[in-house]
Amino acid sequence: MKKPLQDKVAIITGSSRGIGAEIARTLAGAGAKVVVNFTANPSAAEAVCAAIAEAGGESLAVKADVSDPAQVRMLFDATIERFKHLDILVNNAGVLLSRQIADISDEEFDRVLSINVKGVFYALREAAKWMADGGRVVSLSSTVTRLMLPNYGAYAASKGAVEQLTRVFAKEMGERGVTANIVSPGPINTEMFNSGKNKETIERMAAMSFQGRIGEPEDIARVALFLVSEEAGWVTGQNISASGGAA
């Protein structure tokens, strides 16, 4: 039986852990050949590839810092060299900064924008060149762009930019049948989210959802899987909240 993403090729940036790793495993499980992008932890990326191989899938781990345009070009070049084409891009790589605006240094702000915004811009620019007609793009944003939480000013600003870049890309690529959508997760049980938070803070954020829980990476991966499927061909330029109703 043919799988829904059989013969498709997908790049997932920042996919050695957390939400990105779960998206990589999920798309591979649906038949896609997956490029697992990482920056600093090759063993984590190889573990994701090993899990994909064990389940009968095919993947390639590629080291590339998305804040560097030359490395992003290399990521796409490696994908085309190995798999010959590209059908799916998931812009997942990102960093979280939780600090009041008054306390953020120039260097910290630049780092957030370089990875979260420039990384998406560079990837979209390459995707416009390499992606097959009828391709799919999903960019990860966050519900902090709607909630206006204290300490998330820089992060929310970067994700707001991601949303606008993706929407404009959707319109620019529409004539080629390429869709581009945004997924905005609420609090998700990942290393990045849990870092620096005590139990009380996590419980308070869990209570914001209608189900009274923190989301899991697979909750987001399932949404991404739908958006890159054939069934979502008439869904583009949209921002899908995956937050348990929190925002």
Rank of each mutant, 00 (worst) to 15 (best):
A180R: 02
K159L: 03
S43D: 14
L149F: 11
E218V: 06
G119I: 00
T201F: 12
A156W: 13
C49D: 14
R111Y: 09
V183N: 00
V144F: 06
A128S: 08
E126R: 02
R99E: 14
S105F: 05
E216N: 05
A221V: 03
F193M: 07
S229R: 00
Q211Y: 13
L147Y: 03
G31Q: 01
S139Y: 02
D219V: 11
T236W: 12
G212K: 13
A232D: 09
S241F: 02
P69S: 08
G94R: 06
K129H: 15
I88D: 04
R204Y: 11
R125P: 12
T190R: 01
E58Q: 13
A232F: 10
D68G: 02
A47S: 15
A32I: 05
E218P: 12
I80C: 09
T39W: 09
A30F: 05
E203R: 02
R125L: 14
A123G: 14
G153L: 14
T26D: 01
V35S: 11
A78R: 15
V72F: 13
E126C: 03
K63L: 00
R111Q: 12
A170N: 00
V62N: 10
E172D: 09
V223E: 06
R167N: 08
G196A: 13
K2N: 13
M74I: 11
